[in-house]
Every structure is written in C-alpha cells, then in structure tokens.
C-alpha cells in the first residue's frame, strides 16, 4: 500500500507535467466558476479511479490464470519491474513531454461536457510506466481486494497532484517544482529497479 501510494505520489508530478498543460485549458476553459472546476476535476478523478479498478481486476485475473508457477511469476514480475522502472526513468527525464500526452487528442471531442470523462479514460489508459509497474505489482496479489487496495493507494497518491490544478497558473517557480517532480519520479524508478533485482535474486514476490 505504502509503496503504491509513494509511486503514485512521485509519478503524479510527472503525469501532471506531461498532461497538465493539455488538460488545464480544457478544465479551466471559459468563464467556469470554482464549482464547475471542482465538479470537472471530481468527474475526471472518479472516471480515472473506475478505469484503474477495471484494469486492476483484469490484470489480477490474468495474473492468477496465466502465470501459475511461483518461480515463473518471480522471474516475470522481477523482470517487468526492472523494465518498467527503466521506462519510468526514461519517461521522466528523457523525453519531450508536451508532445506525448495521450490526452492531447481531446481536441477531437465535440461535446465539451464529456471532456472530463474522456480525459479520465485517456489518462488512466495511457499506460505510463508507473501504471505498468502498478499492474505488475497488483497481478501478484493474493486477493482481488488487496489488488484494489494497491490501486486505490496509487490513485490517491497520484491524484493529490491534480487537486491544486486550478491554482497552477498562480504557482511561482514552476520550473523548480517541475524539475524536482521529474527527479522524484526517476527516484521512484530506481526504487523499483532495486525491488525488481531483490525479487529476482530472492524470489520474494510474496512479501
């Protein structure tokens, strides 16, 4: 749980950096008051949570059905941790963010009221490395309830970054916050690389 929350918290900043600038004008568009903005952000987050839980359920089911051997699960899980953690580091430090947000396609949506829903779906189906790490993590859980809890913690951590979205325009020293957020994401990647190595070395998938 803690691990998932921390991953959400650290990667949420990079997620905000990546998609925030695309989503921000839509969420804040027009002369919408605070109530409207809060409603839009809430819908966006709820949709995101719903999609996460569906993904968690699917991946847990597949994890239980397909990879039944504990040894194979150790190797697959450990390797995926390392792979996705390396991707997370690359994703946070190495790429041009503004051009790669999946939410950029919301300009295609004609019904503006559906935009928060659409954003929630696109954002949670973005399959960023942090989400892939979470999917790997949850596929090895013993019960579906534990699997959901892992995703809830991840969702809570990453959502904290979206709550002050309406205030982002007023934040000073945005560059510094962005830089620190990107480094924090990379550090989260490092943690998962170490975790992957530990799993592979010791077969410690069941903590």
């Amino acid at each position: 749980m803690t691990e998932s929350f921390i991953l959400g918290l650290s990667s949420g900043s990079a997620c905000l950096v990546t998609c925030g600038m695309v989503m921000f004008p839509y969420l804040m568009a027009g002369s919408a008051g605070v109530k409207r903005v809060v409603a839009d952000v809430s819908i966006f987050l709820l949709v995101r949570l719903a999609v996460y839980l569906i993904q968690a359920t699917l991946i847990w089911y597949l994890g239980q059905r397909i990879i039944t051997s504990p040894i194979l699960r150790t190797w697959v899980s450990g390797s995926l941790y390392i792979l996705f953690a390396v991707m997370l580091i690359w994703y946070s430090i190495g790429r041009k963010r503004n051009k790669e947000c999946p939410a950029a396609i919301i300009s295609e949506v004609e019904n503006k009221r559906m935009i928060p829903v659409f954003l929630g779906v696109v954002n949670s189906l973005g399959f960023c490395p942090a989400l892939l790490l979470m999917l790997t993590r949850s596929s090895g859980e013993d019960s579906i309830l534990q699997c959901w809890m892992v995703f809830l913690a991840f969702f809570a951590g990453s959502s904290l970054w979206f709550l002050p979205l309406p205030l982002t325009g007023k934040l000073g020293k945005k560059n510094i916050i962005t830089t620190v957020g990107i480094f924090a994401t990379a550090l989260a990647g490092m943690i998962f690389i170490i975790k992957g190595i530990t799993i592979i070395l010791g077969g410690l998938i069941y903590e």
Binding site: I6, T179, G181
Partner: peptide
C-alpha cells in the same frame, strides 16, 4: 535540484512507513 527530490521521497516514505 536532485537533493530536494530525495528529500521529498525520504520524508514521504519515512512518514508513511
């Protein structure tokens, strides 16, 4: 700025664990 990211991570992880 990396030490600030480390500070953020260790402060949060220590508070949670």
């Amino acid at each position: 700025w990396m030490p600030f990211a480390v500070l953020f991570m260790v402060a949060v992880t220590a508070a949670l664990t």
